[in-house]
């Protein structure tokens, strides 16, 4: 019994022992998506700047936002999507960036930021850019057409899936109809709703992560997916293919922001600058398989991978970044529920 008590106490105080050990070094607290940074760069940064990185993970912008809203968890750097960064900026949860502290920002191509709510990179800098498209198995369905109307194609009846994400899925329908995926026009949305209901009859399901395993297992033939996910899948199953519909697609831009209550701003700036160092940036892209619009780093990249993480200028022009539409968001929620209940 005494032994048990002793062990319990030991177990309880262990975390504190570690905290007191690391106190001598500065700690950079990062809030990030999982597997969204190359581990070797983290250890390199820790060595170069004599500090320690503590990384926490979130799996949705909303969950991250909710956690920050409740109280100050003390993060120094966060990696939200651009629309969420815009909300955080409006709520004054993040600071305006002092660009003189990020000299490497000169390598960053601004064309992606220009499509977001922060075109001049005042409070956010792009970290990773993704494109939504169609994932498929080249062996089983070699002749997949690059169009969003594939969701209504009877050939894939009940073996094709769309994202369980209202903005992405409705966005695909809007793009097919030639509208902006940030539209709040009732007529355009009504048209998209009709199209979604028509497609729905042909779909197997609305799925995100689970669709990947279903594609790999041959349950699904075509899925709506991000290019980075597909590249990661290709390393296990080379016969996986990826296409971006010719009508244009949604561009996801994940950005780096510094929360207003960060206690280590200097270190956070150092980290941003470190990540934009061309060699580091190239290494990171090779790990996460998403594009960082760093012109110098792109020159250093493996050409094969580079071809997979960028899109043509023509497609880029037709594509958009999903923006925060504030109160109009309820229109999408309503519509999404109506589509699902139909």
């Amino acid at each position: 019994m005494k032994k048990l008590l002793f062990l319990t106490i030991l177990l309880l105080i262990t975390p504190f022992l570690f905290i007191s050990c690391s106190k001598s070094k500065k700690v950079l607290y990062i809030y990030n998506w999982s597997e969204y940074i190359a581990p070797e760069l983290m250890s390199k940064f820790e060595k170069d700047y004599n500090c320690k990185i503590v990384m926490d993970y979130f799996d949705s912008n909303e969950a991250m936002y909710a956690k920050l809203k409740v109280g100050s968890p003390g993060y120094d750097l966060i990696v939200p999507s651009s629309y969420m960064a815009s909300i955080m900026n409006k709520k004054e949860m993040i600071i305006n960036l002092d660009k003189s502290k990020i000299p490497n920002i000169k390598f960053i191509e601004s064309k992606y930021s220009e499509k977001t709510e922060d075109p001049k990179m005042q409070y956010s800098v792009p970290y990773a850019v993704s494109f939504t498209g169609l994932g498929y198995n080249k062996k089983k369905t070699p002749a997949v057409k690059p169009t969003w109307s594939i969701f209504g194609d009877k050939q894939y009846y009940h073996q094709i899936s769309m994202f369980n994400d209202m903005r992405e899925s409705i966005g695909a329908a809007l793009k097919y109809l030639g509208y902006s995926l940030n539209t709040t026009d009732d007529k355009q949305l009504a048209e998209a709703k009709q199209l979604m209901i028509k497609w729905k009859k042909n779909l197997a399901a609305y799925q995100n992560e689970e669709a990947k395993t279903s594609l790999a297992d041959g349950i699904l033939l075509v899925i709506q997916i991000y290019n980075g996910n597909m590249i990661q899948m290709q390393s296990d199953t080379p016969e996986m293919g990826f296409l971006i519909p010719e009508e244009g697609t949604s561009i996801g831009v994940e950005v780096l922001v510094i929360p207003s209550d960060s206690e280590n701003r200097e270190l956070a700036y150092n980290f941003i600058n470190f990540m934009y160092e061309p060699e580091n940036c190239a290494k990171n892209m090779e790990y996460i398989a998403y594009l960082c619009p760093n012109t110098k780093a792109l020159e250093l990249m493996d050409k094969d991978l580079l071809g997979k993480i960028i899109i043509s200028d023509e497609l880029f022009k037709k594509s958009e970044v999903i923006k925060d539409i504030g109160g109009e968001n309820t229109k999408y929620v309503r519509m999404w529920d109506e589509i699902k209940a139909h």
Binding site: S60, E62, N329
Partner: peptide, 13 residues
């Protein structure tokens, strides 16, 4: 599923 949608996508707690 609706609860999950409202909490995580619609941001409507």
């Amino acid at each position: 599923n609706l609860i999950a949608t409202q909490a995580f996508i619609a941001r409507n707690i």
